[in-house]
């Protein structure tokens, strides 16, 4: 496991009270935190995602009750290719937190947080549909925007062809 490095242009967010709380409760899963334009992102190990989410929602000080979005980014060529991004908001405390966790391509799965926020159901299905990341323990993991029998991969992956595979370049009709 390579040590967490703050990307250039971003501030170190490890002194943020939320990052410290997660670091204290889950020292092994916590990797680091960044601040960019006032947004806090906490990088964590994927194994603890459900426990950390449960802490975020149930802890009286944190109270992150509102799931804003769940999405994924494909960093093709990096060792752990996919990044799953969770954004939560606390309506009472009026603050946001972003969790980022990496998922490797050869074991492309992460635990589902549907049990914590019901709204995560559709958001995770979309991530699965578009990026092909499987959510274990998801109640209904199937494609959502694309047809069920869609067999051409996951469109938001960076290696998805932008111009098709040539099937529709010419139409030859039998005479």
């Amino acid at each position: 496991m390579k040590p967490f490095r703050i990307p250039e242009g971003m501030e170190n967010g490890e002194n943020h009270v939320l990052a410290q709380k997660i670091c204290r409760c889950f020292p092994e899963a916590y990797l680091g935190a960044t601040l960019f334009r006032g947004d806090l992102s906490v990088h964590i190990q994927r194994e603890e995602i459900v426990s950390i989410c449960r802490l975020l929602r149930d802890d009286a000080d944190l109270d992150f009750d509102y799931p804003v979005h769940i999405t994924s980014v494909d960093y093709m060529g990096e060792a752990e290719r996919f990044e799953v991004v969770y954004e939560f908001f606390s309506i009472r405390e009026k603050r946001q937190i972003r969790l980022k966790t990496r998922v490797p391509e050869d074991d492309c799965c992460i635990d589902s947080v549907t049990g914590i926020w019901q709204g995560a159901n559709y958001l995770e299905r979309e991530v699965y549909d578009m990026m092909g990341i499987r959510f274990t323990n998801h109640p209904d993991l199937q494609r959502i925007l694309l047809p069920d029998d869609y067999d051409e991969g996951y469109p938001l992956r960076k290696n998805f062809p932008m111009q098709g595979r040539g099937w529709r370049d010419s139409f030859d009709f039998p005479h």
Binding site: P7, E8, G9, M10, F36, R37, D39, S41, V68, H69, T71, V73, V85, E87, Q96, R98
Partner: peptide
Amino acid sequence: APKGDIYCGTEAHKGELGFYIV
């Protein structure tokens, strides 16, 4: 645009319309 990622939500008339840009 500089390197980084942001989420910005706006209250559209249907609800929170947000863009997450990397």
